[in-house]
Simulated scan of single mutants.
Amino acid sequence: MMPPSVIARKAGIKRNPVAIVWTDKKPEKALEFKPGVWSCVMWLFAKVANDGKTAVFSEATTTCAGGSMGLGFGRPWEKHAARSEDGFCSFLSNGADGAIDKEAYNAIIAQSFDDHHRKMLTEGERFFKNPAVVKKFLKNLPLYDAKDKFIVMKPVSEVKEGDDVKSVVFVANADQIAALSTLANYGTGNLRDGIIVAAGAAGCQAMGVCTYAEYGKEQPRAVVGLTDLSARKSVRATLGKDVLTFSVPYGKYKAMERNAEGSFLDLDLWKELRDSE
C-alpha cells in the first residue's frame, strides 16, 4: 500500500486524495451503480473523497454519456437523451434553436420521458455558443476506450504496487489550490504551461480523460476541474460550495510527494494560510 499523502497532510487537505485506476479485476464490496439507471460519476467520487470508500465503474454501469466519455468508455451517444452526436452538440449548446437537424431533434424532444427532460433538450445547457463549438470541444476532448476494463476510484493510500493509476485527484479550497499549483511547478520552472483549467469539461472529464492525456509527457500538466456547473450542483451537498478538483497523472503525483518535504509547505507563510479561518 502507498503511505498516506504527504501533500494532503502538509497542505491541510482533509479529504482523501483519490486514485483513478484501470483494472481487469472488479474489487469486492465496492460502491457501484446499477446498470440502466442514470447516475452521475461525481456522486461516487465524492463518497470516495469524503468517506474513504472504493467505487467501481464499468461500461454497463456508467449510464451518463458525459461520464462515460470522462472515465474513458468511448463515446456512447446512445446513452444520452439526445441519442446522437449531433443531438448531443445541440443539447450542450443552444438546444432546439441551433439543432443541426431540427426535425430529428424535435422528434427526440417529443419522445422525452418527462417535462424536465423536454425542457432541458429544448433549451440546451448553453455551456457552448452553438453546436459547431461543441464539435470543436469534442475534437479537443481526449478519447479513450476502456470498455473491457473496470475503472476504480479509491483513496491513494490504498494504491498497490502494480496498479495502473491514471490520475490522482485532490479536492481543495482556494488556498490549497494555490499551494498545489505552486508545488506542481516547484521542480519545473513552468509559469503558464504547468497547469490547465478544464473549462467546459464535465467534472469527471477533467479528472479523467483530460488528466490521462498528460500521462507520459515529458512535462505533464496538472488539471484544475470541477468548473462544471452541473457537477458542482451534484456534489455541493457532499463536498460543499468552495472547492475545486486538482488532478495529476500518477508520475507527477509521486514527484510532488517527493518535493513536498522541505518546500514552502514547511514554512510559516503557508502554515498561517493553512491554519487561518
Results as ranks from 00 to 15, higher is better:
residue 154 K to T: 06
residue 146 A to Q: 05
residue 211 T to M: 14
residue 30 A to N: 11
residue 144 Y to P: 05
residue 207 M to Q: 01
residue 133 V to N: 01
residue 29 K to L: 05
residue 2 M to P: 14
residue 164 D to I: 00
residue 195 I to T: 04
residue 245 T to L: 01
residue 45 F to N: 02
residue 106 N to M: 11
residue 255 A to R: 11
residue 36 G to K: 07
residue 211 T to V: 05
residue 173 N to Y: 01
residue 23 T to F: 04
residue 20 I to A: 01
residue 204 C to V: 08
residue 173 N to K: 06
residue 171 V to N: 09
residue 232 R to H: 09
residue 43 W to T: 03
residue 88 F to G: 01
residue 160 K to T: 10
residue 94 N to P: 03
residue 30 A to F: 06
residue 221 R to F: 09
residue 204 C to A: 06
residue 9 R to N: 08
residue 2 M to I: 01
residue 238 T to L: 14
residue 3 P to Y: 11
residue 20 I to M: 10
residue 264 F to M: 07
residue 36 G to E: 10
residue 123 E to W: 04
residue 114 D to L: 01
residue 107 A to L: 02
residue 202 A to E: 06
residue 15 R to M: 15
residue 17 P to I: 07
residue 157 S to R: 08
residue 30 A to T: 15
residue 244 L to G: 00
residue 6 V to C: 11
residue 27 P to I: 13
residue 37 V to K: 10
residue 222 A to D: 10
residue 269 L to I: 01
residue 164 D to F: 02
residue 132 A to V: 08
residue 168 V to I: 11
residue 103 E to H: 13
residue 89 C to K: 02
residue 28 E to I: 00
residue 225 G to T: 00
residue 213 A to L: 06
residue 269 L to V: 00
residue 27 P to G: 15
residue 160 K to A: 14
residue 21 V to I: 15
residue 76 P to N: 12
residue 65 A to E: 12
residue 35 P to G: 15
residue 135 K to I: 04
